[in-house]
Amino acid sequence: MSKIHVTTSVNGDAVEFLCDPRETLLDVLRDRLGLTGAKEGCGTGDCGACTITLDGRVVCSCLVLGAEAEGREVGTIEGIANGEELHPLQRKFIEHAALQCGICTPGILVATKALLEKNPDPTETEVRYWLAGNLCRCTGYDKIIRAVMDTAAELRSESKELS
């Protein structure tokens, strides 16, 4: 079967790849581009471990074909930190012990970063519903929610200081 040539951008870098027409974007990221931060937990869009952004929108990369990345902007967990400086969410997740095994963490970080960009002051309920598509089996979500709320508060106080 002939492969499809795709030109796209991943975390701001220009990227080209060849993929099978049936290959998911998740498989392309992991198996062809070496970006294994996004995980496959289900392959059916139910668990959110493969969460990435496509043109800024949160998607399950297991439900996107590699070919659909043509001309788009892909954002993954590998692009969240700024050099050696972690994104505040990454820092707060460590501080709050908001991960145990860590397999869901990349997807949850990508999803919550998008949430805070959209809504800097979410309620606990809003955070819980935003993350309803990201399964975590270890933590019971308690410390995850606290880490997100604390990050949001820190980012708000920083932006207040700037303004």
Binding site: K39, E40, F93, L99, G102, P106
Partner: peptide, 23 residues
């Protein structure tokens, strides 16, 4: 005490290697 876990950075940046991450 509850210090930061030593594998924290690996796990929040996506570089921790899980079962399916080996080639």
């Amino acid at each position: 005490t509850s210090p930061d876990r030593p594998d924290g950075l690996d796990k929040v940046t996506g570089r921790a290697k899980f079962g399916a991450d080996a080639y």
